[in-house]
């Protein structure tokens, strides 16, 4: 168990340093390239006509923008550590509250999408992995590469056209009832399933071809017993490892799908604040997405450590 705790600490350290680097780069980029931030804030707050020099100076002093960059950076980091991300330039709401509100929706959507993708990918991938190289496997592989080529917003559009406009089964967009969740979750889920079913299929096929799997049959175990005892855990290791790659994919997809379906999650918030140049919100959203991303990676690594004794062994000996 000691190794596992040590591994968590290493990951946390790595994750925090990455998050800090990203946040710092974001801070520098915003402050060095964005011209006069105080002017932007003043315009956003008091409209362009009222933002004369006197108002801009007032804003500058009020927001601490007259300090040297290093002092500003320290203040900014200090505020982040106390979870104070400032206020939105547009709505004047605290960024932390905004993030929590929108994260709730993204969490719902992502969970539903992962559930959908598992529902599709598990049986599909297992079937392909049991008969690798067969007709079903070939056709599935073609379907998957076709699905991967279709942008997610096109998949979403086709679903809207078919299920919402033609058949009236689900609402087109919005967030007022659980029915609104169905189409965006399917859209995201299909894209994830197309890739993960292939990962499941190849890793299962590889395990089934390995000597220890065939040795299980030689021992006299039934095919079902061999599959449950030697197949599932071995095949799941690459699948779980791949989740960290999929997390990036999911986050990208969240932005597009939330925009398409007007789902008020983090992606939509990020896009809206980018279009409105609402810098505190952009920074906050990026920080949150970074933290989420690191959290997913740490979780995936931990699950892999639990699943795979070889990895634990390497950790213990290194």
């Amino acid at each position: 168990m000691g190794q596992v705790v040590r591994s968590i600490c290493t990951h946390l350290f790595q994750g925090i340093s990455v998050a800090l680097i990203v946040a710092t780069l974001g801070f520098l980029a915003v402050n060095l390239t964005r011209g006069d931030t105080a002017l932007d804030i003043a315009i956003a707050r008091y409209s362009e006509d009222l933002a004369d020099e006197r108002v801009v100076e007032l804003v500058r002093r009020e927001e601490g923008l007259d300090q040297p960059l290093f002092v500003q950076y320290c203040q900014w980091v200090g505020r982040i550590l106390t979870l104070d991300l400032g206020r939105s330039l547009v709505s004047r709401e605290p960024v932390t509250a905004l993030l929590i509100h929108h994260f709730h929706y993204t969490f719902l959507l992502a969970t539903a999408a992962i559930a959908v993708s598992l529902l599709i990918a598990l049986p599909w991938g297992v079937l392909c992995g049991i008969y690798p190289g067969g007709t079903f496997d070939h056709i599935s592989s073609m379907i998957c590469s076709a699905l991967v080529s279709v942008p997610q917003f096109v998949i979403g559009l086709l679903l809207i056209l078919a299920l919402a406009i033609r058949l009236h089964w689900f609402p087109v967009a919005g967030f007022f009832s659980p029915a609104h969740l169905v189409l965006p979750a399917i859209t995201l889920g299909i894209g994830l399933a197309a890739v993960s079913s292939r990962v499941i299929a190849t890793s299962l096929a590889e395990v089934r071809g390995s000597l220890f799997y065939r040795f299980g049959a030689m021992k006299g175990l039934s095919p079902f017993r061999v599959f449950t005892a030697h197949g599932i855990r071995n095949a799941s290791i690459p699948v779980v490892t791949y989740i960290s790659v999929q997390a990036a994919h999911l986050l990208d997809g969240v932005v597009v799908v939330e925009t398409l379906f007007a789902w008020p999650g983090l992606g939509k918030l990020l896009l809206d604040s980018v279009l409105a140049r609402d810098i505190p919100v952009i920074q906050g959203a990026c920080l949150l997405i970074g933290i989420l991303y690191v959290a997913v990676n740490i979780t995936v690594d931990l699950i892999c450590l639990v699943l795979d004794p070889r990895r634990r062994n390497r950790l213990a000996t290194s």
């Binding site: 390995s210 000597l211 220890f212 040795f215 299980g216 049959a217 030689m218 021992k219 006299g220 175990l221 017993r225 005892a229 030697h230 855990r233 071995n234 290791i237 699943l307 795979d308 004794p309 070889r310």
Partner: peptide, 30 residues
Amino acid sequence: IYGKELFLLPQEPNSALDPVMLVAGQVSEI
């Protein structure tokens, strides 16, 4: 027939043993 009448004990223990199962389990399952 396998295991009950005929059995082949392979030569590479490194790939014949399931890497993620306790070795006792691999004997006891028989």
